[in-house]
Design a protein around this nucleic acid. Structure first.
Length: 465
RNA sequence: GACCCUUUCAUCUAGCGGCCAAGGAUGCUACGUUUUCAACGUAGAGACAGAGGUUCAAAUCCUCUAAGGGUCGCCA
């Protein structure tokens, strides 16, 4: 059975790059009807944060990623790790190192000065003498001294690293707590992971973890190292590039399905297909199709996807979602019309909410440019007589086409061009030159409100004369 | 600096030696549609990092160069 996991350390919010690797892992598990596990990497007791954990879980819930079983906390498994440390110590596969931090710093500086890769020199590897007093030892694992550590990466192909590049790294701190590379290998093995999908910043951890697997006799999972997501300029994604926190996307008015669709196409593809529903992703995703190279974040494409998902969202679902963005239109008698008239005008839910308010609420002021252009000449007379005409139809008009017919009749009898009434009317209704069609707006707000807005505009024009 | 990884339009990508004078998508530019904007439709501009091989044939294989990135913690 396929088992994958997401293993964040609770040090902050869920990053968009983290969400992508989580998504890749989740899709792999769901594709094979396997298990997707969540494990919290909190071995560094001083850096844990409950807040961060909550944020991660909240983000998972928002985008709809579910996990199987209980969340595993490494901080609750120290006894288990201790047993493996003792085992390695007993078998001579690990040893106590009495080198102080200061000595280690000096060693590293020397190596860097010699332009070498900094690493532990193994001085306590075969130490049998009397340990120096006053030093709490760390425990180091014995890494192979020669040969290569080779593994097949599902994304990058064969990775070969010389054994002497991997030092006898620390598996337990001097306070006895175990370290990352040690516990990751143990947990991945014990939790039955078959595929480990993670960012390629972990590529160099893999040989270290392989040392642990070998020492403990565990079987290796398949590793996939996914390249990073860069910003639009191709540089490392940072907070300055805008939203990196997954939950920020909710506030900005993005739909989770759009965000997921965007992320799945960053570093993965299936022919020319751009739009993937969740079930299509599950059906089509295969980690072997993940790209080797880094990709860049592209807001325009995310916006396009978001607009696509907004346009295609059923109206009843849209109503509920919109409630979180300050628009409560549940039960509105022209709901369908309202949404159909505005849906295509917002790339985000925030924009859509604004569009809806524009239709629903009479303009509080008029865009100066629009007013200047549309409220000139005999605009007020035209508007006034159109309002008069419209009043005759009170209670009889329901659909945009019916309002349109009245407009047509008006221009016909007045012998004026369509724009002569349409433009001033638009500005009267919306306060702006752009926006939903006037026929639709009138149909949504009805004759009474239309007349009211026209009166308001006429008052505004007269006042300005 | 050492080690490892990467390199197709501005961006996401297709491409697995002949189907490629390189396809799709976003963005951009026109045009159409529309009372306006948007949406939509049609068209257009736009790339194999460079140099050498291998081969009848290379975006695809090999080598080098260049540029980007990652890693070098008693962090994860």
């Amino acid at each position: 059975m396929t088992v994958t996991r997401f293993a964040p350390s609770p040090t902050g919010y869920l990053h968009i790059g983290g969400l992508r690797t989580a998504l890749f892992s989740w899709l792999t598990a769901r594709h094979h009807h396997g298990r997707f596990l969540l494990r919290i990497e909190d071995t560094d007791l001083s850096r844990n944060s409950q807040e961060a954990l909550k944020a991660i879980l909240e983000a998972f819930q928002w985008v709809g990623l579910d996990y199987d079983g209980d969340v595993v906390y490494q901080s609750q498994r120290f006894d288990l790790y201790r047993q493996y440390i003792d085992k390695l110590l007993k078998e001579g596969k690990a040893y106590r190192c009495y080198m102080s931090r200061e000595e280690l710093d000096i060693l590293r500086e020397e190596q860097m000065a010699r332009k070498e890769r900094a690493r532990y020199d193994g001085r306590y590897r075969d130490f049998t003498g009397t340990p120096p007093a006053g030093v709490e030892p760390v425990i180091r694992i014995k890494a192979p001294l020669e040969g290569n550590i080779i593994f097949e990466d599902g994304v990058k192909g064969e990775i070969c690293i010389a054994a002497d590049e991997v030092d006898d790294f620390i598996i337990a701190r001097s306070d006895g707590t175990p370290t990352y590379n040690f516990v990751v290998a143990i947990d991945d093995a014990l939790m039955g992971l078959t595929e480990v999908i993670r960012g390629d910043d972990h590529l160099y951890n893999t040989p270290k973890q392989i040392v642990v697997y070998k020492a403990l006799g565990f079987t290796l999972p398949k590793f996939y190292h996914v390249a990073m997501i860069n910003n639009e300029q191709g540089k490392k994604l940072s907070k300055r590039d805008g939203a990196t926190d997954v939950m920020a996307y909710q506030k900005l008015g993005f739909l989770p399905e759009a965000l997921l669709n965007f992320l799945v196409r960053l570093g993965w593809s299936h022919g020319d297909q751009e739009i993937f529903s969740i079930s299509e992703m599950i059906e089509l995703f295969d980690p072997k199709d993940i790209n080797k190279s880094a990709s860049s974040y592209n807001l325009d494409k995310l916006l396009w996807l978001n607009a696509h998902y907004i346009k295609n969202m059923p109206n009843d679902k849209l109503v509920t979602t919109l409630a979180d963005y300050g628009v409560s239109i549940e039960g509105h008698d022209k709901l369908e019309m309202l949404l159909d008239a505005t849906k295509e005008r917002g790339k985000t839910l925030v924009e859509l909410a604004a569009q809806i308010k524009l239709v629903l609420d009479a303009p509080e002021n008029y865009d100066p440019k629009a007013a200047k252009k549309a409220f000139k000449g005999d605009a007020s007379e035209i508007l006034r007589s159109f309002a008069e005409l419209l009043k005759n139809w009170e209670g009889e008009l329901h659909f945009p086409a019916e309002y349109h017919a009245v407009l047509e009749k008006f221009v016909e009898t007045k012998e004026v061009g369509f724009g002569k009434i349409a433009q001033p009317l638009r500005v009267s209704l919306l306060g702006s030159m752009t926006g939903s069609g006037v026929d639709e707006v009138m149909a949504i707000i009805g004759v009474e409100e239309t007349v009211h807005r026209i009166d308001q505009a006429v008052f505004f024009i007269e006042k300005g004369k």
